[in-house]
Computed example of a mutant assay.
Amino acid sequence: MARTPNSEGTEQRRGRGRGGEGGERDGRGRGRGGPEAARPEREENEFVDKLVHINRVAKVVKGGRRFAFAALVVVGDAKGRVGYGSGKAREVPEAIRKATEQAKRNMIKVNLREGRTLHHDVTGHFGAGRVVLRAAPAGTGIIAGGPMRAVFETMGVADVVAKCLGTSNPHNMIKATFDALVSLNSPRSVAAKRGKKVGDIIGRRDGAAAATAA
């Protein structure tokens, strides 16, 4: 059966559309989409998240029990930024995802001394929970309980001594720890408030520490 000119032209146009112009458009589209697709992955890799606590609750309904999960997650960039969040869902992965997103939205910036420890001792409380955070010399490590240890590890603190007084509820411990971190002051901020130089503030702090040790 002989092919008509219209059918040959249609086949040629279809062939050019697949291999020629269509392939170029697909290639350009993939080329532009590559960096944009990689950018969210780099942002995800910048943060370190730790699951602090997960609670399972059961609701008794007709025909059985219905389970739900509540997750508490701490997220940080290991450079002084840290946040916490909680999420509830019928499945554990979904609860963790909700908690992680909330933690990323509620991140705070904490100024660290030499990038490894706190500038000064501080206390924090929330509800029945009370925590004491103390700066430590190099090589001390993180001496803290489970929930507080997760906060310091994700924040990037290498040397700190922490103690929880009162309740051991993970939620109260985390909130009390953040209450203490928010009240931290760096020498630069104190000098700016008092109208002095940073050297004066640091010199007085070192002199007081030496006098206490003596």
Rank of each mutant, 00 (worst) to 15 (best):
V82P: 09
R14C: 15
R194P: 09
S7N: 12
N55D: 15
T4W: 01
L72R: 02
E91G: 06
R32I: 11
A71T: 02
T4L: 01
R134E: 08
F126Y: 13
H125F: 10
I202N: 07
L51W: 06
A144V: 07
M107I: 14
K163A: 07
E24N: 05
K62T: 15
R65G: 09
K175D: 05
A210T: 14
G83C: 07
F67C: 04
K79G: 11
G17C: 11
R130L: 09
G145N: 09
E94I: 01
I54P: 08
E153H: 10
F126S: 01
A99Y: 00
K104N: 07
V182N: 09
K50M: 14
N45T: 15
T154L: 02
A95W: 00
G127N: 04
A213G: 14
D49C: 14
G83K: 07
K88W: 00
V61S: 12
F152N: 03
P137N: 10
T123F: 02
A95Y: 00
I143L: 15
A209N: 10
S86G: 13
G127E: 05
L112T: 15
A150W: 03
M1K: 07
E24R: 13
D49M: 11
H125M: 07
R204L: 11
V132F: 12
P170G: 01
V110K: 15
S86M: 13
E114M: 13
K193A: 14
E11P: 07
H120V: 00
A213W: 10
S183P: 02
G17F: 12
G34L: 06
S168Y: 11
T167C: 12
T140I: 04
G27K: 10
V60N: 07
A78H: 15
I142K: 06
T212G: 12
G34T: 10
H125E: 14
S86Y: 06
R81W: 05
L184R: 05
G85C: 06
V52E: 13
N6S: 09
G203I: 04
V57H: 03
A176S: 08
R130I: 04
K104M: 01
G115Q: 13
G156V: 14
S186V: 05
G146N: 07
T123M: 08
N45M: 14
F126G: 00
K88I: 02
T10N: 10
C164K: 09
T10M: 09
L184K: 08
R134T: 11
V74Q: 06
H119F: 12
R204V: 03
R194Q: 13
R205S: 11
I202G: 04
V82K: 03
V122W: 05
G87L: 01
R56M: 12
T4S: 12
V74P: 03
R194D: 12
G195D: 04
K88M: 02
H125P: 02
K88Y: 01
S186Q: 05
K193F: 08
A180L: 02
A38W: 06
G29F: 01
P93T: 01
S7E: 14
R30V: 00
T140C: 03
M155F: 08
E41P: 03
A71N: 00
A176V: 02
E41M: 05
T167K: 13
F126H: 05
A99C: 00
R32G: 07
R66Y: 04
G15N: 15
Q12D: 15
I174V: 15
A38I: 07
D121Q: 04
G146M: 04
R28N: 09
G124W: 07
E46R: 15
R130S: 13
I96K: 10
V61N: 08
H125R: 10
E43K: 03
R81E: 08
D77P: 02
